[in-house]
């Protein structure tokens, strides 16, 4: 079980939205983790430096939040094999699909991009179906 956290989730979501707005206003870029991560995988994008800085900030923030006393619930309820297989599929999928929940889900839908709306509908349905099959059809 995980706790239902409407207020923290709304606040956290607003911060994710704020980072998307700031990245567009200051750098003119979409705050999509797929694009930002891909830009620092060799062969490097010519603009890898700001992407590396963004990634470093994203990694540092939860660490600092914990250091100042914030609590972050975290548990991985799947075996290592699921992380390897799931991660590999995620990598293939975000490359061909052109984005993930941050890029398509927040930035793309905020721009009312038809591509993003189709992508989000597709990956949500796929994820709901996958979890249903694993937890109820197979795992029962």
């Amino acid at each position: 079980m995980t706790d239902f956290t409407p207020f923290q989730s709304l606040l956290g979501g607003a911060l994710i939205g704020l980072s998307a707005v700031l990245l567009m206003a200051l750098h003119g870029r979409i705050a999509g983790m797929t694009g930002i991560l891909t830009g620092v995988i060799p062969p490097l994008s010519p603009e890898w430096r700001w992407r590396a800085a963004f990634l470093a900030g994203a990694v540092a923030a939860p660490l600092l939040y914990q250091i100042v006393g914030g609590h972050i619930a975290f548990s991985v309820p799947v075996p290592t094999l699921a992380l390897v297989v799931g991660g590999f599929l995620v990598g293939i999928g975000v490359h061909f699909g052109g984005g993930c929940p941050s890029g398509h889900g927040i930035c793309g839908i905020a721009r009312l991009s038809p591509r993003s709306i189709v992508a989000v509908a597709t990956f949500m349905i796929a994820a709901f179906a996958t979890v249903f099959i694993i937890r109820h059809a197979i795992g029962g």
């Binding site: 995980t2 956290t5 923290q8 989730s9 606040l11 956290g12 979501g13 607003a14 911060l15 994710i16 939205g17 704020l18 980072s19 998307a20 700031l22 990245l23 200051l26 750098h27 705050a31 800085a53 963004f54 990634l55 470093a56 900030g57 994203a58 990694v59 540092a60 923030a61 939860p62 600092l64 939040y65 914030g70 972050i72 619930a73 941050s102």
Partner: peptide, 13 residues
């Protein structure tokens, strides 16, 4: 800005 993103991801769950 990456920090704001990471904080949002952490706080949101």
């Amino acid at each position: 800005i990456g920090g704001v993103f990471g904080l949002g991801i952490a706080v949101s769950g």
